[in-house]
């Protein structure tokens, strides 16, 4: 009777109690958390945007900093979601034994992993929305279409939270996450059109880049911030949603294998 770890998730509404637990902890530490999630990307955006912007007069018909704004929004959302499920998630799962305590209540592991997914997406969406506000205040976007970027960054948060949860399920210790950042997150950031247009990439790299979820997020969010309707928005959203579902399914199976023995 080996349990099938790949069985579909069995969820209950109790997962919102777990979400709320994470929210209540976050609320206690909200100020440093927001400053951390906001200040770093904004400083990069302004520094690179104005610094490099002097050398690069226009990219795809807009100022470099306006080009950079959409990319910054996506990659900082990705980072916020990734850090949450990797470091904070691993603390809750492995170090503080929070998940073990919760599983003694009428809440299943499936609920906990789903709650972590939604929580990380919520937190990253909040961070992204704050960055979007800064972008608007600085005048790098003036279009009401920019508001449509908020649900997209929530989906982006879900997608990277799901991918990160795979790593959390496999991690023996915090050090393990360095591989994920160095071998996946950083190259992806450089290939996904965050800092420069993807048509600068060699064709072979471009093929890989088109498969990366961050590329798809940038492809929707950047035009929205520039007041344009994104092309093939349905395809990009479908890729993000599909990666979310498949990654969550795998992450859940790996977490069940790790904890339900």
């Amino acid at each position: 009777m080996t349990p099938n770890h790949f069985a579909p998730p069995r969820l209950s509404l109790r997962l919102f109690a777990v979400w709320r637990r994470n929210f209540l902890v976050w609320r206690k530490l909200a100020l440093p958390s927001i400053v951390g999630n906001l200040a770093d990307p904004v400083i990069y955006m302004l520094g690179l945007g104005y610094g490099l912007g002097m050398l690069v007069p226009e990219v795809e018909g807009v100022s470099y900093i306006a080009f950079l704004a959409g990319g910054t929004l996506c990659y900082s959302t990705m980072n916020a979601a990734t850090f949450e499920v990797l470091y904070s998630g691993f603390s809750r799962m492995h170090v503080q034994k929070t998940w073990e305590a919760i599983m003694n209540a009428p809440i299943a592991l499936d609920d906990i992993v789903a709650a972590e997914l939604v929580w990380a997406a919520s937190k990253s969406c909040l961070a992204g929305t704050a960055i979007l506000a800064v972008i608007a205040i600085f005048g790098f976007t003036a279009s009401p279409l920019a508001l449509a970027a908020i649900p997209v960054i929530f989906l982006t948060g879900l997608c990277f939270a799901a991918l990160g949860l795979i790593m959390t399920a496999l991690a023996p210790s915090y050090d393990f996450f360095m591989y994920y950042f160095t071998l996946f997150i950083t190259p992806m950031t450089l290939m996904s059109g965050v800092f420069f247009p993807q048509n600068q990439l060699p064709d072979s790299v471009r093929t890989i880049a088109d498969l990366l979820p961050l590329s798809h997020a940038v492809s929707i969010v950047r035009p929205l911030l520039l007041g344009q309707m994104p092309q093939q928005a349905g395809l990009h959203l479908a890729v993000l949603a599909m990666v979310t579902v498949l990654a969550f399914w795998l992450a859940l199976a790996l977490t069940r294998r790790r904890l339900l023995k």
């Binding site: 109790r14 109690a17 777990v18 709320r20 637990r21 209540l24 902890v25 206690k28 530490l29 503080q96 034994k97 929070t98 073990e100 305590a101 919760i102 209540a105 009428p106 809440i107």
Partner: peptide, 20 residues
């Protein structure tokens, strides 16, 4: 496995939340 970020009372309140 107490929640180190919460007070004693908060630990009880949050845990009760898991039972609805």
């Amino acid at each position: 496995s107490l929640d180190p970020d919460f007070t004693c009372a908060e630990n009880l309140i949050v845990f009760a939340g898991y039972f609805g």
